[in-house]
Design a protein around this nucleic acid. Sequence first.
DNA 1: AAAACGGGGGC
DNA 2: GCCCCAGTTTT
Length: 219
Amino acid sequence: MTSSFPITTVLDLIEATLPSFNQPLIDQMSAEQQTPFRILVATLLSLRTKDTLTAVVAPRLFAHADTPAAMLALGEQRIAELIYPVGFYHNKARSLIAIAHMLLERYNGAVPSDLEALLTLPGVGRKTANLVRTAGFGLPGICVDIHVHRITNRWGYVATKDPDATEMALRTMLPAQYWIPINRLLVTWGQNICHPTSPRCSTCPVATYCARIGVTRSR
DNA sequence: AAAACGGGGGC
DNA sequence: GCCCCAGTTTT
């Protein structure tokens, strides 16, 4: 069962109503703070973690280390202590140290914008790499996180359990102008309306376009 | 394909 | 008490 409406129609409707909703982590950061490095670090901290919690913890880390060199100076143990509440803190601290080393050795301390280069960084998968590209550099990419994955599948435009497969499906379906904004749109939607369990369908502006697949159960 | 990594918050 | 969270790596 798939929707008979173009996905771009639904995305346009969401775009129009977006300002009235709370915005996700990256959009809460000031323009000054939306550097590729900060976005990379904040995104890594936020994996499998509420972004509202990351929004509290990340500034704590940035106050001590805002560059790869400062991250190395801080050290893995101290980083782990600072980011403890976000969970997976040992893995994340180790990844941040390894990333700082690689950025200094291979990219002169800068964050690369190339997708393949980003994917070689430890702890960085397709979701993180594409978010750095789109939010950090304004470059084309489709960042498929749990929200983009759940909602596009719930609508009926995509039918897959694998987020990477969802990204590939959207690449063939979505005009280029929607590649960057779809993530911001659907993360906001997922956090405010289209929840994993108990989505607010009765007040959802695009409910008539939705196949409502998997509404009663997530994943 | 499945396990492991993890504390915090919602209900 | 149970489920989920802007995933990725390892087995």
